[in-house]
Computed example of a mutant assay.
Amino acid sequence: MSNLVKHDSVHTSSKEALTAEFAKQSIIYTFSKRSLDIVGALVGLVLLSLILFIVALLIKFEDPKGPIFFSQKRIGKNGKEFKMYKFRSMVTDAEAKLEELLKFNEIEGAMFKMKDDPRVTKVGRFIRKTSIDELPQLFNVLKGDMSLVGPRPPLPREVEEYTPYHMQRLLVTPGCTGVWQASARNSVGFEEMVEMDLYYIENRSFLFDMKIIFKTVIVLFGSKNAF
C-alpha cells in the first residue's frame, strides 16, 4: 500500500511539474508573440508607408465620394466583437448588394467568396490580388484585436452557422495571416480551412509563427488564388 501511495505521489508531482512547465512556456510564447506583433506592425507601417499613401490616393481618385478605409465587425478571441480595418476595395453599397450574390458563393460553408464579384472596383481588384487591402489590419494588431499570425476573424453571420467544432477557431487571437493564407488560400473549402486553423492552434509556437510569416510573403508574390 505504501509503495502505491508513494507512486501516486511521484506521479502527481510529475504532473504538477509538467503543468508548471507548460504554463511557463505559454507565458513565454504569449510575451514573445505580442512583442513580435508590436515590432512587426510598427516596422511594417513604416516600411510600407509610401505604398499605403499611394493606394489611398488611387482609391480616392477612382471614387472621390467614397471612404478610403473600410471597417467591418468581426469576431475575435472568445467571441469578442471588434472592427477590422481594410482598404476599401468595393463599391460603397457593397454590403447592401451581398444578399443577391450569396447564391453565387464559390466556397462551401460559412464564408462568401466570389472570384468575379461585381462589387469590386478596379483598384480594389488589384489590391485584393496583392493583399494590399489587408495592410490597415496592422493597426488592429497594434490595438491587440488581432495578431500577425492566427485564424482569420469571421463575420458575425458566419459564426451564427458555426458548430461547436468550428467555434474552436475562436479560442485564440485572430491573425492577419495563418496556415490557410500561407498555403491554400481560396483553393480549399471552409471545413479544410477550419482543420488548418485547429492544426495551428494545437502546434503554435514562435518559430511556427515566423515560418508562416515568411511563407506568406512568398505566397503574396505569386498567388493565383487571391480574390
Rank of each mutant, 00 (worst) to 15 (best):
D8T: 12
D209I: 09
A41Y: 11
M146L: 03
R157Y: 14
G178S: 09
N225G: 08
A226G: 09
K103E: 15
E95Y: 10
L170K: 12
M167V: 05
K60H: 13
I201W: 05
E160T: 00
I75Y: 06
R152Y: 02
R34L: 14
I38A: 12
E202Q: 10
V10E: 02
K77S: 11
D197H: 13
H7N: 13
E161I: 03
F82C: 10
F70C: 07
A184N: 11
E99G: 15
M1G: 06
L45P: 08
K24A: 10
K15E: 03
K86F: 01
W180I: 11
D209W: 05
L102Q: 15
D116F: 00
F61P: 01
S131T: 00
F112V: 05
K97Q: 15
I218C: 01
H11A: 07
K224A: 04
A182C: 01
G79T: 13
L148E: 04
A182M: 01
Y29H: 07
A182E: 01
V141W: 03
E100M: 15
R119K: 07
S131K: 00
F53C: 11
M90L: 10
H166C: 07
A23F: 07
L135M: 10
M193K: 13
N140W: 01
E195M: 05
S187Q: 04
Q25W: 05
L142E: 04
Y199K: 13
L47D: 07
S49M: 05
R125F: 04
D93L: 15
R185S: 03
K83D: 09
T92C: 06
P154Y: 04
I51V: 06
V159K: 06
I201K: 06
I51A: 04
V5P: 01
F31L: 14
Q25R: 09
E160L: 01
G150F: 04
K6Y: 03
Y29F: 13
T12R: 10
S2D: 09
D133S: 08
I107W: 06
E106V: 12
I213K: 00
P136E: 02
A184K: 13
P151H: 01
G175K: 05
L36T: 15
V46N: 05
F190L: 08
L155T: 04
M167A: 10
D63T: 02
L220P: 04
L101D: 11
R119F: 04
T173M: 14
F208W: 08
D37M: 14
I75Q: 05
F208E: 11
L171M: 12
